[in-house]
């Protein structure tokens, strides 16, 4: 696979920006009503920096994306998604295979866990990112299966009680709502699959 990074970036950014209100609405229910705004601000900054990013080799481009997210998103999601892209940049070769991707995403998930002192089943983005990383490495992944898993894992955060993140302040009242970060992770992953499939 040799997809166009510019197109991937634009696709993911467009999707996040388009769904910003939904993400904010999810965050209103169990957080502070800013997740969509944060992500939109971050990806708008990434788009603004696109020329610079695309001039770099993949690892450096990913690091640049990560740094932009760290410096523009703020909140909990900024350092965490920043860490995701920074780690991918550190772990991926210039021309990655699916196995490289699985390994790098697994490393990124570990880095997010460390940064946020969180674990799986805490009702966070990790509940989408972790299972997807594992599935990428299990030899059965297809575009469709990855999309389905991301969707299913985001849905699976609905009945969870939040242990980490702002929703944890709600205790039992966090149950019954989808985690906004899980949903934004799902959106990024499914959009990536869509774009990659279209190039394939």
């Amino acid at each position: 696979m040799k997809p166009d990074l510019g197109r991937l970036l634009e696709g993911v950014a467009a999707r996040i920006i388009a769904q910003a209100e939904e993400l904010t609405a999810l965050d209103s229910a169990i957080g502070d009503a800013d997740h969509g705004l944060n992500m939109k601000r971050g990806f708008e900054a990434v788009l603004a920096d696109k020329a610079n990013i695309l001039a770099k080799p993949l690892p450096e481009a990913l690091k640049a994306i990560g740094m932009t997210l760290v410096m523009k998103v703020g909140g909990a999601s900024g350092p965490l998604y920043g860490t995701l892209f920074l780690t991918l940049g550190k772990e991926l070769p210039e021309d990655p295979t699916l196995a490289d991707l699985a390994r790098a995403l697994t490393a990124a998930v570990e880095a997010i866990k460390a940064r946020g002192k969180a674990d799986f089943d805490n009702k966070t983005m990790l509940d989408v990112l972790g299972p997807v990383a594992r599935h990428l490495g299990d030899g059965t992944a297809t575009f469709a299966s990855v999309r389905a898993l991301a969707h299913q894992r985001a849905e699976a955060t609905v009945p969870m009680k939040a242990i980490k993140g702002r929703a944890s302040f709600l205790g039992e009242r966090s149950i019954g709502h989808m985690d906004p970060g899980a949903r934004s992770s799902e959106l990024m992953i499914t959009t990536l699959c869509d774009e990659l499939e279209a190039c394939a």
């Binding site: 800013d34 944060n38 410096m71 523009k72 703020g74 909140g75 900024g78």
Partner: peptide, 9 residues
């Protein structure tokens, strides 16, 4: 930071 959003590093 932005409204209700922590500042960035």
């Amino acid at each position: 930071g932005q409204v209700f959003t922590s500042p960035t590093p």
